[in-house]
Write a protein that binds this DNA or RNA. Structure first.
Lengths: 214, 214
DNA sequence: GTCTATACGAGGATAGAC
DNA sequence: GTCTATCCTCGTATAGAC
């Protein structure tokens, strides 16, 4: 997609690649929306980051809201596909749960902006756009796994709905709190590869131990 | 503090109570900041909600940022005091953990805006104001409990730092996701008294089972 | 202490040249 | 397709009467 720039006489500027430009805008928008949410994000901040003109946003995405929708759907679709590919219904509840968690954590580790995007959407917009962008959601999938494990007797007695939320929290809060947490004295780099892997391990261990029966 | 209004001739308006006005503004601001975060909150929205003039915000709190700081410090202090009163160092790690969780969940159940305020602060402002407003933080307290339990051998082998974050997540994500979650088909009222109590129970059970050794 | 009216800057969106 | 220049609304903050 990103073919060679059509740089003739002048040294850098003229790019002229519709797809590339859109991709660049989307990437920058994702960062900005992830940090600030819809309202507080400035279109100019996105433009500055991309080094394309602000008006390109309106050319490709109509307005700020259109761009927001685009970011939201893309992020969410990415996560949802990954999870659905696992075909968790085929597996035993314990294995299904572990695979689910591993995939989820892997996905958000690759794109740590995802949790904060969803968070902003949930809090600021009360899930308005979120709802539009998908019929199925991942919580439902997790609930189903927990229910199967309950009836099979491999999980301890718990409320699937409540447990699903708390499990998601144990996985995702890390990314949401990252900004705050890095202010701590020890000043660890939470999004380094090593720390992300450790987080995945720790979260999975906590959850599996937390739901197992006996 | 909120003494009788000095309503003479006219039917409602003239209140003239500095403390009361400040309190009203603070309460409204807390709601708005909790939903929208600092930047996206409109001072006018706060004023509309309070039915006092917008300029009162500037009179009492200098500017939007001053008001934000006030909200943040108050929320945080409330939570921190509650936890510190427990004198957890005196207790065994298991009991300390359970009391900690119970107090935390009780506190945020009474004020469900607290988690979203802290979250916005973490994500949008990277914990800038948060850091100012307190030297100690609750995560540190939780980490200490986990470390004590580790050396005592009552908790399974885990990383206290990582575990503390994930535990907080299991408790608080419920409130952060509430906006999104209520869009679900079943449409439960997540902030009803019954549901909040169930959440506390479920979260505590999950965490205790998750950290216990053997 | 409280209100109304307003100044002023920031930011979303568009026009039109290239 | 991309840019620059510009319009105009919205939102913070202040002035000044009561």
């Amino acid at each position: 997609m990103t073919q060679a720039k059509t740089g003739r006489g002048k040294n850098i500027k003229p790019v002229r690649d519709a797809e590339a430009t859109q991709a660049v805008i989307l990437a920058a928008a994702e960062e900005e929306f992830a940090q600030h949410g819809f309202t507080a994000t400035r279109t100019e901040a996105i433009a500055d980051k991309t080094k394309v003109a602000k008006s390109m946003i309106y050319y490709y995405f109509k307005d700020k809201e259109g761009l927001y929708r685009a970011v939201l759907t893309r992020s969410h679709a990415d996560l949802l596909e990954t999870i659905q590919k696992l075909e968790l219904e085929q597996l035993s509840p314990e294995v299904a749960l572990e695979n689910f968690l591993r995939a989820l954590l892997n996905c958000v580790s690759r794109n740590p902006r995802l949790p904060t995007i969803m968070f902003h959407e949930a809090v600021q917009n009360q899930g308005k756009y979120y709802k539009e962008s998908s019929s199925v959601n991942i919580d439902t999938i997790l609930i189903a796994i927990l229910e199967r494990g309950l009836t099979a007797g491999v999980f301890r007695s718990l409320d699937p709905f409540q447990a699903a939320i708390n499990i998601m929290g144990a996985c995702l809060f890390y990314f949401i709190g990252a900004g705050n947490i890095k202010q701590f004295p020890q000043g660890k780099r939470l999004l380094s590869k090593a720390m992300l892997e450790q987080h995945a391990q720790e979260a999975i261990a906590l959850i599996l131990a937390g739901v197992r029966s006996s």
